[in-house]
Design a protein around this nucleic acid. Sequence first.
DNA 1: TATCTAAATGAGAATTATTCTCTTTTAGGA
DNA 2: TCCTAAAAGAGAATAATTCTCATTTAGATA
Lengths: 138, 138
Amino acid sequence: MSSEDIKNKLTERGLKVTPQRMAILEAIYNLKNHPTAENIIDYIKKMHPNIATGTVYKVLGALVDNRLVKKVKTENDIMRYDGVMKSHHHLYCMESDVIKDYVDEELDELLQNYFEKKNLPGFKIEDIVLQVKGTFNK
Amino acid sequence: MSSEDIKNKLTERGLKVTPQRMAILEAIYNLKNHPTAENIIDYIKKMHPNIATGTVYKVLGALVDNRLVKKVKTENDIMRYDGVMKSHHHLYCMESDVIKDYVDEELDELLQNYFEKKNLPGFKIEDIVLQVKGTFNK
DNA sequence: TATCTAAATGAGAATTATTCTCTTTTAGGA
DNA sequence: TCCTAAAAGAGAATAATTCTCATTTAGATA
Ligand SMILES: [Mn+2]
Ligand SMILES: [Mn+2]
Ligand SMILES: [Zn+2]
Ligand SMILES: [Zn+2]
C-alpha cells in the first residue's frame, strides 16, 4: 500500500490527512499480525520520535469509527488492531500471542447458507467471525 | 446449581472451599450474561460486604486456570467471565453490551466436518467459537 | 497565495481495570 | 485440636487508556 493510497483512504472518509494518521495507518499495514497500540508506537517512533501516546490512541479511535481499522478481541486487556477490513477469521495461538488471519470464502458461504435457513429469532446478524483456538505446530 | 454442587466443583479440582470462592462461582452462575469482575463484586457485596477486590481477581484467575470458568473476549479492556463450560458461541449486540450464549449442535457438527476435511496446515484446532455480531431486534 | 479557524496534536495529569506486596486468617489434613 | 500451606484482606502499585488544555496545523476560503 503506497503513501498515496493511504492518503486517499483518509480523504475518502473525510479525515484530515496528518503525518500522524499516515504513520499510524502505515504502521498497521506494515506490522501486520494485529499490533497493539504499543507495537504501533514503537514502530512509529523510529521515523517520528515526537508522536504523543494520546494521539495514537485518539487516531486509532478515529480510524475504527471510520472503518479504516478494526479492533480485534483478545483474552486480556490489551487491545489489538487489524488493517484487513474484509470479513475474515482468526487463528488464536494458545502458546503465544500470535493471531493469524484466516480467509476462507468457502466457509463463509457455508455459514451464510446455514444462517439463511436457520435465522436466529430476535437477532439480526451483521458479521460472523470465527475464533479458532489452537496451536501452531512447530 | 446448589451450594453442594458448587462445593463439589471446587473440591474436584483440588481447590480449597472458601466462602469467597463459593460466592464468586455462585455469582457467575446467577448473574449469567457474562459478568465483569465489577458485576461480580457488586453482586457479592450484598451478602458478603467485606470481600476484597484483589481476592475476586485472584479467585477468577484460579477458576479460569482450573477450567471452572472461561474468559470471554470483548472489544474493550473490561474482562468478562462465563460459567458455561461446554463449547458454545456468542451473539454480540452492537448497540448494547449484551453477549448472549448461542448453543447449536448442528452447527458444531457442520464445522467439525468442515475442518476435518480442510485441515489447516500448520495449525492444530482445539476449539472454535463464533462471534456473531449484530443487533437484537426490539 | 495569505488568512482563518475548526480540528488535530503534544504534554502530562487523571482514570481505572488489574496486579502486587505483605500481613493476617483459615481450610482441611494429620 | 494442631499445624501449616494456601487463601484472603488492605491498600499500594502498575499499566493501558482517556482526558484536559495549551499549541499547532490542514485545508477551505477569499
Ligand atoms: Mn484499562
Ligand atoms: Mn489495564
Ligand atoms: Zn485479522
Ligand atoms: Zn457464554
